[in-house]
């Protein structure tokens, strides 16, 4: 089969529109993931055993089930109880919530990497819990987390095509739309692949630079 350049150029503007949605969805999803991830990580450390256990169970359940099914639940089941979300909202929440459970583990590892001595020294210096977190624990815990968080951002970016399943017109949705109108799949799907490949390679390079930076900082 022949690659049709005219067709490829014809669909390019719509794919670029879709690419914008893809990028917006990735960043909004990431924002939700880092906030909810923190809530999960703190919930799991709670002194109240029942809070720690139920947060842990919920997180494990979300992590053990497919993102696609979670998107369907947000999009098809929630309207039954009166919560109607737009496709993009449902997609961003689903993407963020699913990855929050992974990012919570990044926080956990970061917090646990701080030795007991730091906590004990803070107590000896008569710092309050808030001061200990703010001045001692968090500044030390964040740098090692940065590369891991960057990796999740890249992973989420590659998961966004799933949103087309709940009719979000991100780049894959636009491509499949164009393909089903014309029965020409080669150009749109290949172009989406090229888009992801280029951005992933650039991001992988940036992540490596970031990792070097963090190592020097430490």
């Amino acid at each position: 089969m022949e690659w049709n350049w005219a067709f490829a150029f014809a669909i390019l503007p719509r794919l670029l529109e879709g690419a914008k949605i893809t990028i917006v969805a990735t960043f909004l999803g990431f924002l939700i993931a880092i906030v909810i991830g923190l809530a999960i990580a703190l919930g799991r450390r709670s002194q109240q055993a029942w809070i720690a256990r139920s947060v842990g169970l919920c997180a494990d359940f979300i992590r053990g089930t497919p993102l696609l099914v979670q998107l369907y639940v947000l999009f098809f089941v929630l309207p039954n109880i009166g919560i109607v979300l737009s496709p993009l909202t449902a997609g961003v929440i689903g993407l963020g919530l699913h990855n929050a459970t992974y990012i919570a583990e990044v926080y956990r590892a970061g917090i646990e990497s701080i030795s007991r001595g730091q906590w004990e020294a803070s107590k000896a210096c008569n710092l309050s819990i808030g001061q200990t977190w703010r001045h001692i624990i968090i500044p030390q815990a964040i740098p090692p987390m940065v590369p891991a968080l960057a990796n999740y951002l890249i992973a989420m970016f590659k998961e966004t095509p799933l949103l087309s399943a709940i009719t979000v017109y991100e780049i894959m949705g636009e491509a499949l739309g164009a393909a089903s109108r014309t029965y020409q799949y080669l150009e749109p799907v290949t172009m989406v692949g090229g888009f992801f490949l280029i951005i992933s390679l650039v991001c992988a390079y940036l992540a490596r630079v970031l990792e070097e930076r963090v190592r020097i900082y430490q």
Binding site: M1, K158, E159, P161, L162, M172, L176, A179, Y185, L186, V189, T190, V192, G193, G194, F196, L197, S200, L201, A204
Partner: peptide, 23 residues
């Protein structure tokens, strides 16, 4: 490794199913 990690799984699946038949 770089190719398959870089192009989303979703794209690969659709490529295998919709584009390969044309070839």
């Amino acid at each position: 490794i770089e190719f398959f990690r870089g192009t989303s799984l979703f794209v690969q699946l659709f490529w295998a199913f919709y584009v390969l038949p044309f070839m």
